[in-house]
């Protein structure tokens, strides 16, 4: 405990916490991305995957607890560091000049973080909790079932991204996330002291951070972009018709 307090109380220690929590969150982002990407394999794959996760409480709950802890630590250290940084310069320079030679990503890291946090809340309400008010379709996502009676994640994604404001917000948020990552990962590597030249590439971890952010952006946004371009349109329209029909007949939705 003493050891943890030592870390928490030192400036470098807080950066370790910030960096390591961020790093673990990056793992989640990668896992989530791989889940999302299954949408291109069709409803069977992604819904099976969803059911699998859902049924494995021994994986799901520890993962959720770790994730939540990391989010709390990440945000907590961010605000603590921010407060210290503010206190370190009580009087600023004339005209409040922009941070000299600093990248856009680094200057906006706090702002991008806050917007991402807001998006995450929306995203959870939208898909995980299926709050009908936020998805703009009027359909209850949590009630969607596929032909095997499993939650129809495939349809949920198609429906969700069929509303352009949702898709655009999603793309912007992912963009900000990647901006956040491009600096955050670089800073994380720096904070834990990984800054090597390898295979002739100087500052390899920095390069990894930059390219990683780009790859993440492309893969994540490919889903809403594909949906808006008409991917799965037939499936979606059929489902909507079916939903409407069953709503009229008052029958259980079962496809």
């Amino acid at each position: 405990m003493n050891f943890l307090m030592k870390i928490w109380n030192s400036s470098l220690g807080k950066k370790y916490i910030m960096g390591i929590s961020g790093f673990l969150l990056v793992f989640f982002i990668v896992a989530h991305m791989m889940g999302n990407f299954q949408v291109f394999l069709g409803p069977y794959w992604i819904n099976t995957y969803g059911q699998f996760l859902h049924d494995r409480h021994e994986i799901l709950w520890p993962a959720r607890i770790v994730l939540l802890t990391m989010i709390v630590l990440h945000i907590w250290s961010a605000f603590k560091l921010r407060a210290e940084n503010r206190a370190a310069r009580p009087v600023g320079y004339a005209g409040d000049p922009a941070s000299f030679a600093a990248s856009y990503a680094s200057r906006t890291i706090m702002m991008s973080g806050i917007i991402i946090a807001a998006f995450v809340i929306f995203h959870l309400l939208h898909y995980a909790l299926g709050v009908r008010a936020v998805n703009l379709t009027g359909i209850d996502f949590s009630a969607l079932r596929d032909s095997a009676g499993r939650p129809d994640i495939y349809l949920m994604l198609l429906l969700g991204f069929s509303k352009w404001p949702v898709a655009v917000f999603y793309i912007i948020a992912v963009g900000l996330l990647c901006l956040h990552l491009s600096h955050g990962m670089r800073a994380m590597f720096q904070s834990v002291g990984w800054k090597w030249t390898f295979g002739g590439v100087s500052h390899l971890p920095d390069q990894i951070a930059r390219w990683f952010a780009v790859v993440i952006f492309i893969i994540y946004t490919s889903v809403p972009v594909a949906v808006m371009c008409g991917f799965g349109k037939a499936y979606r329209e059929a489902a909507v018709q079916h939903l409407a029909a069953s709503a009229v007949s008052g029958k259980e939705v079962d496809r």
């Binding site: 807080k14 940084n85 370190a88 600093a102 680094s106 200057r107 800073a187």
Partner: peptide, 10 residues
């Protein structure tokens, strides 16, 4: 009472 590094490179 110095601040912390946010790796801006300034």
């Amino acid at each position: 009472g110095f601040g912390n590094c946010t790796v801006t490179g300034s």
